[in-house]
Design a protein around this nucleic acid. Structure first.
Length: 635
RNA sequence: GCCGAUUUAGCUCAGCUGGUAGAGCAUCUGAUUUGUAAUCAGAGGGUCGUUGGUUCGAAUCCGACAAUCGGCACCA
């Protein structure tokens, strides 16, 4: 039989030869770096005798698949360590995740992060022991019996659930035997020591909140110490940009115990917030949206009619007054239908694009709250497009164009789309869902954008597109959405008169670009690390004086900048200029205009931009013109 | 909501095995009039998250509650 290498070279091999043998044949150093092989796209252990030929590749620690195997092995070594140090613990599953792995463990006594040092120590010992890792294929019943005999009930349960006919493979290293699909390294010594335990958290068995709570140990693992160091450094950087920290440091907003999940916006934060809102206002009004505003508190009757009460009433804030039960609106759509229903609508009025920056409240579970990213009181850049079925494609395409253009203005160009179809619990008939999913699918195809399927994740009233953007440090955030809804217009009895003179149901497209403005604000702060583009910066420029005698001149400059509608401040404090420059830089002020006796004399300023040491001297007139031009928001 | 951790001055954090609190930065006052990332000196500031309990005595030990943090579950 023969194998073919990625470069096209073909080699004859005999049956029974292992990947390890082949690697050694190429070079001993390659064999040392190898972690597994890929045969016809399938990953296999290095030491498994080959029984067939085909497309062959040696996987090393440098390959993405190689690092995954290494992480998986690290999880196994963690499990082995846990069984050695805490024999009463039961192990469950330990998969690879981004940058590392975790292992879920059942044990009565909680672990603490103080245990990490001892665990890591023992893990390193197991690496030093260089235990061979061997694959074994077991009979299902034997495997169940074995794991039950050693008290590993969770493992036994997993094996029971493996579909019949599938091979039950176990991997043995030292005295430790774990259920695993593989592949694995040939021995624990190959792992290296570029790993670290990171976090401890609770996690439900099989992800179901009705099941027992397990303890999850998170770890990170890399091919080299250098990569581990880099990763830890990246985490530090992410921590530095945390919007909760920057929000406090930059005096943008705060939250307090008396209003958990709600934001107290400070003047600077609110300036940014309003800029964002007004930017969206300009963008949507240009493409045919109208803006409305609807009540925050609405009778439960409307929520029952829309279907929200049944599904979400536990997460709604309610208020009883006289004999009525009101709910704070968790979303705007039912209110928009009420506006649509006023008067008689003609097909000539469609598509009607109705936008609202409505304040919505959702009683999110306490454990879900997270800074600005998950709040209980928020505003979306929400809109509903009432249209005819034939309009879905063109409206979807127009929306995708708008959304991409908006994201681009914030510097987000890496955007992915997820197509989420019918969930298990849903409103509307299957025929309606067929129609809605078909129409949305056709629309997204027509938009020419790439998408991935996200089965079962649609809203209860319709399928949706979800727009995921990638930020400056590579994190993904789901922000925009577009949902096709045939259900709500029906339930809330919206209709229009068609060209045939008959009544028809409009289709509703629910859509948002930024999503929650609170959350998008947080994403922006972290994306820019607080260094906002000029048009968003709450203070765009500060005039800093070198001596008191320049104060009058500073005030003249300040007035002129205000006249040009710039957000300007003055630093007339009795401090050295280097102190002011440091202080204003720490505050992330985009521009500092320094003026002393010389500038006052010559009617100039000395300009310094955030992040640069350079000083540019320019005339006052040029300076004001330049600032005005640069501070203009995107169209 | 569930698991674990945390909560001390505006911020960041000390405070060992119980004897009623401390630093740096910030703030205020004074001196200094200064040329591009921290001038010097002094002062003020805390019911130690809230609330019960143990104790002669609690920031410290125990309980309840709240909020926050890390996850899980949830996310119209």
């Amino acid at each position: 039989m023969q194998i073919e290498f990625p470069d096209g070279r073909v080699q004859q091999i005999e049956a029974g030869v292992t990947g390890s043998d082949i690697a050694k044949g190429i070079s001993p150093s390659l064999e040392k770096k190898a972690v597994a092989i890929s045969l016809n796209g399938e990953l296999k252990d290095l030491n498994v005798p080959l029984t067939a030929g085909g497309k062959f590749r040696i996987i090393t620690k440098d390959d993405p698949e190689g690092v995954e195997i290494l992480r998986h092995d690290t999880a196994h070594v963690l499990a082995e360590t846990i069984k050695e140090l805490y024999p009463d613990a039961q192990i469950t599953i330990g998969p690879v995740i981004e940058n590392g792995f975790f292992y879920d463990i059942y044990r009565d006594k909680p672990f603490t992060t103080d245990d990490f040092e001892g665990i890591e120590q023992r893990m390193r010992e197991i690496v030093d022991r260089n235990e061979p890792i061997q694959r074994e294929e077991w009979d299902r019943d034997e495997a169940i019996k074995y794991f039950e005999s050693i008290g590993e009930k969770f493992k036994a349960e997993i094996i029971r659930d493996i579909p019949a006919g599938q091979v039950i493979s176990l991997y043995r290293q030292g005295k430790f035997l774990d259920l695993c699909r593989g592949p694995h390294l040939p021995s624990t010594g190959r792992l290296g020591k570029a790993f670290k335990l990171m976090k401890l958290a609770g996690a439900y068995w099989r992800g179901d909140s009705k099941n027992p709570m397990l303890q999850r140990i998170y770890g990170t693992a890399w091919a080299t110490e250098e990569q581990l160091k880099q990763h830890l450094h990246m985490l530090e950087e992410a921590e530095k940009r945390d919007h909760r920290k920057l929000g406090r440091e930059m005096d943008l907003f705060h939250m307090q115990d008396e209003a958990p999940g709600s934001v107290f916006w400070h003047p600077k934060g609110w300036t940014i917030y309003r800029e964002l809102q007004n930017y969206i206002r300009r963008r949507i009004s240009k493409v045919g949206y109208v803006e409305v505003n609807t009540p925050i508190m609405v009778d439960r009757i409307l929520w029952e009619a829309s279907g929200h009460w049944e599904k979400f009433h536990e997460n709604m804030f309610i208020s009883e007054t006289e004999d009525k039960l009101f709910a704070l609106k968790p979303m705007n759509c039912p209110c928009h239908v009420q506006i649509f229903r006023q008067g008689i609508k003609s097909y000539r009025d469609l598509p009607l694009r109705m936008a609202e920056f409505g304040c919505c409240h959702r009683n999110e579970p306490s454990g879900a709250l997270h800074g600005l990213m998950r709040v209980r009181s928020f505003v979306q850049d929400d809109a509903h497009i009432f249209c005819q079925e034939d309009d879905i494609t063109s409206e979807t395409k127009a929306f995708c164009d708008l959304l991409m253009s908006v994201y681009k203005d914030f510097g987000f160009t890496d955007v992915r789309i997820k197509f989420s179809d019918r969930p298990e619990k849903r409103a509307g008939t299957d025929a309606t869902w067929d129609k809605a999913e078909g129409a949305l699918m056709e629309a997204v195809k027509a938009s020419g954008l790439e998408y991935t399927l996200n089965p079962g994740e649609g809203a209860f009233y319709g399928p949706k597109l979800e727009f995921v953007l990638r930020d400056a440090i590579g994190r993904d955030w789901q922000c925009g959405t577009l949902q096709v809804d045939f259900v709500l217009p029906e339930r809330l009895d919206a209709n229009y008169i068609g060209s045939d003179g008959e009544k028809h149901r409009p289709v509703m497209l629910h859509r948002a670009i930024l999503g929650s403005i609170e959350r998008f604000f947080g994403i922006l702060i972290e994306n820019y690390a607080g260094k906002l583009p000029l048009w968003l910066a709450p203070t765009q420029v500060v005039i800093a004086t070198v001596v008191d005698s320049a104060n009058e001149y500073a005030k003249i400059i300040c007035d002129q900048l205000k006249e040009a509608e710039l957000r300007v401040g003055m630093d007339l404090r009795n401090e050295k200029i280097s102190y002011k420059v440091r202080d204003l830089s720490v505050q992330k002020i985009p521009y500092i205009a320094v003026v002393g006796a010389k500038e006052a004399e010559e009617q100039t300023i000395s300009l310094r931009q955030l992040g640069s040491q350079e000083q540019t001297v320019m005339t006052l007139k040029d300076f004001v013109a330049m600032m005005k031009a640069n501070a203009a928001p995107p169209a």
